[in-house]
Design a protein around this nucleic acid. Sequence first.
DNA 1: CACTTCACGCGAACCGGTTCGACGATGTGT
DNA 2: ACACATCGTCGAACCGGTTCGCGTGAAGTG
Lengths: 340, 340
Amino acid sequence: MNIGEIARRAGVSRSTVSYALSGKRPVSDDTRLKIQRVIDELGYRPNASARALANGRTSTIGLVFPPAGNHYTGMQLDFIGSVVEAAAAYDYDVLLSPSGVDSDRSFQRLLGERRVDGAILMEIRLQDDRADHLADLDFPSVAIGRTAQLDGRWWVGLDHTALAAACVHHLADLGHRRVAFVNRPEQLLRAGYESAHRGLDGFTKAAAERGLTVRTYCCGDDAAAGQECVERILHDDPATTALVTLNEAALGGLYRGLARAGRHVPRDFSVTGVVANRWAETVTPQLTAADVPAAEMGRLAVELLVERLDQPTASARHHLLTPPISLRGSTGPAAAAPAS
Amino acid sequence: MNIGEIARRAGVSRSTVSYALSGKRPVSDDTRLKIQRVIDELGYRPNASARALANGRTSTIGLVFPPAGNHYTGMQLDFIGSVVEAAAAYDYDVLLSPSGVDSDRSFQRLLGERRVDGAILMEIRLQDDRADHLADLDFPSVAIGRTAQLDGRWWVGLDHTALAAACVHHLADLGHRRVAFVNRPEQLLRAGYESAHRGLDGFTKAAAERGLTVRTYCCGDDAAAGQECVERILHDDPATTALVTLNEAALGGLYRGLARAGRHVPRDFSVTGVVANRWAETVTPQLTAADVPAAEMGRLAVELLVERLDQPTASARHHLLTPPISLRGSTGPAAAAPAS
DNA sequence: CACTTCACGCGAACCGGTTCGACGATGTGT
DNA sequence: ACACATCGTCGAACCGGTTCGCGTGAAGTG
């Protein structure tokens, strides 16, 4: 059931079948119908590899996502789902690539072996060799996040600086004076993860602006680490009355730590941060947070990539998102007189 | 930088380069080295499409996963991650396929266009047309879950019947007599989702065995639905003292509903179920549950599929997993005298 | 020294599509 | 009536690998 077989049964040449399918040259209604009938009858579908080989396009985009060791967070899942869905709408498949331990190997698979037409890079770092490498090769790609070097880059990002700052202002407006920041794991911060860095920056600057006393922490991506982190925070400064977090996976642990320490949220202690809304709504009280629009980001990333693939000469575009803070139940006015 | 270019620069024929790379025929050390040097110098990698076309294998496996409308759960994420990782270890890429609204279209892409060598099917139903279809075609695939029809099928599954029963026995042993079951959404149950059905069966039978009074509920895959479900449960039978759930995404909402109703977990009310451990540990108190070994299942599924691809004549194999219940803090002895 | 054996390398065919140039059968203008 | 453009179709070349059959020179054997 290859194109030759169809041609034979329809009594035409292989090229005619090809043109009938692609429409790149006129074919008489008569023969087109004849061909179509044979195709329907045999359930023929053109072989993707052969097509890719012939016209140089695989109709596949690569999604380079973080290694598993680094636990996945909920927003990543939403993101992957929306990328797959958006890609399907443009007739692209999605190939997952773990940028794992030897990231080079899978990277080479994608690019060197021409498995994909373009790529979406997750978990961007400020200095990101993958992104730099792709830019050098002029390989069509869209980054999720902003590298330090932005010229000519295509990306979809969240304004973590502004979001963290917004959280700070929200807390300061409520009268909080001593606030902690719970970041992603130290290892990621050191590796230069964009969200961790910009979030920290935004937090620090806004806190300085508002004259707050702050401490910043790194926290593992799981509940146990979150709980332990709260213990550290309250040990270091028992007068702390609020925290801001970027760490979705630790959220449940943060709440547990506060409960264990006898702090009631939001009466004695306020919690806010940047978290996908599905997870913000899971905890009790629901988290007042800037909702990460993961699904929208996935969709936008695909749209940018498709645009770039369609017109390779187009100049770089990007989307910087700054979702508003959704008020839920986890923040409240600072307690009048916290325990010394 | 195709194989012809390499051959030319190395002063040999294309076939010799091919054999040097594949090792399927002997090549003298001398020429092998010469070829290798050219390859390293040019950073040559064979084109995946051409290779796939020539030898009929794409080195890609398809992962057919549920549509986004149906919210993703945490275990799905762990699962996807481990599949990608395991596949990489066997030199396979993973192509995501949404079995979405018109599941046929993407399905046709995978199979009809020969984009993948084999497939892993998530979210299996008892009567699953996708699985039946693949079996009819004798297309290499591994299902995550057991269809009703098992002859000759390859699958990796969780023994939801036994797990739900184990939860019931655990609660009965603690003295609970009135227990509720919180299932996946009604729509999924009606669609015939395997886990929802077998879990319900196991729960019902074990409860009958132990002479418990039970009610069963379907619950949407989000926190709000969980909260509302608890309200229904306590309204229908205020004397209920425990629940068993398969619904990971609703877990946070279930806890919230109980807290709102003034039931303290585990003092007044016990909660248990079948949930990935990462999520069981997120709630407070941590959930006593049968931990879904999502990562292990992903790995096993890939191993089975690779085995099947390597020896197409091998007879069907499967893995049925029954993880033990991990005791955490969410279950306790039934209260002596619940409010009437 | 003639004769088999073997290791090594080459050329050609093939996988299943796409695309280009050409060509015969029409239709149009004069 | 003729030249000429147009439409529809065909054959052949090409994409970049893999694989089969064969030829050749060197080594092994009697």
